[in-house]
Write a protein that binds this DNA or RNA. Structure first.
Lengths: 212, 212
DNA sequence: TATGAAATAGCACATTTATGCTATTTTTCG
DNA sequence: CGAAAAATAGCATAAATGTGCTATTTCATA
């Protein structure tokens, strides 16, 4: 069994390693601190358990799902600081059985999550379990945005520029720009501020994310 | 020597412990995850080395300085995720010789910082050193915006354009533009989104206004 | 199977932002 | 009083936004 610790903070990898080593003696633990390195490691070992800090890894939802789809045997344990309900809904309801544990969870919870991951089981932290229980949001009809559009609106509301979003998602500036206009047209707004207000009202972004 | 690891994330304390144990054999390592517990530990051991995640510990600048002043023999190593230049300036120029290392720093940097802390020396990460070199800011205080600037920041946070603000206040575009740059410079931001976040945090705008 | 919606990508251009400068007048305060 | 901010106003420019178009590919489904 190979564990890949994907986190750009040395100290966090150190902590996970300290918990993991007694738990999985004989297994190898690889550390990566960049997306490119992670892809390389995954190619070399497609059935690894990936312990990923999503937020620190500068990775979009879409890239995450792509990576999982490209290596369907890989097991993913999301291990982040703060995860929005929106993002969790996105990931958990997309059919991918990710495990989710928070950095703020207790040592024993994290150990449980790692042990489960090593056995191929999913561990869900309280928030993730709650989001999963809530299921598909009621969505009273008029939310006419597509999934990609909601994703992009989320980035816009976080203050990302068109170029930044395009780069992060490996898409053309023009594509994101087109999405942006479609969003604006559907929402009947014509600037970022109004779009952001909608995103707040629709729960596509919330204050806790916004503040960070 | 007693080390107190003050952080509310189990995983980070685990990582620091893993680095610290081979570095300081025989010394005792205490972990605390609340401010009250930290104060108790400090009372019991006033010359401890405190490794503190300031941002996660829900501690204001003032409380931090009070604690240091109450236990002048204690040595403090700030160990956080993100520290604003403003906060660093506050802490470093207040005469307290805090060591500062970032969670995003490399393993070897963190080890150096811990080793120095154990010897009673201060380690400064790049950002902290830079802030210290820059010296005293022109303005000693923080909420340094003038009344006009706060007013204009309010309008900016409401999504008004420079032209709109100028027209509404019967002033030149250039004047509002100048105010805008002064605001951005003082807040150390460089776009409307970051400025708006500050406006929320500082109470210059609130959600009820924002939503209308 | 065909129709349309969604996702992708491009060109062009006016507007706005963000930031580099300078400079005068007014206010504030030691 | 006199120095230091603050408020006012300007020029110039790179970058980004907002919006007018077109066009291909993919995919769901009526």
């Amino acid at each position: 069994m190979v564990f890949i610790l994907a986190d750009n903070q040395d100290i966090t990898r150190e902590g996970v390693r300290a918990l993991l080593e007694p738990l999985a003696p004989g297994d190898s633990i690889v550390e990566t601190s960049s997306r490119a390195a992670l892809m390389g490691q995954l190619a070399a070992c497609p059935d690894a358990v990936v312990v990923l800090d999503y937020t620190l890894f500068d990775m979009s939802d879409i890239q995450l799902m792509n990576m999982k789809q490209r290596h369907p045997q890989s097991l993913w344990l999301l291990f982040s600081d703060e995860l929005s309900r929106h993002f969790l809904r996105q990931v958990l309801l997309s059919g991918q059985a990710f495990g989710v544990v928070m950095k703020t969870d207790s040592r024993s919870d994290i150990i449980t999550a790692l042990a489960k991951a090593a056995r191929g089981e999913a561990y869900l932290c309280d928030l993730a379990a709650q989001v999963l229980r809530e299921g598909v949001p009621a969505q009273g009809g008029q939310a006419c945005l597509t999934a990609s559009e909601r994703l992009i609106l989320h980035e816009i509301a976080l203050g990302k520029t068109t170029k930044e979003i395009a780069y992060a998602q490996n898409l053309s500036f023009h594509t994101i720009n087109a999405h942006r206009r479609n969003i604006f047209r559907k929402l009947e707004v014509n600037n970022v501020h109004e779009a952001t207000k909608y995103a707040f009202r629709a729960g596509i972004i919330d204050l806790t994310e916004y503040y960070i």
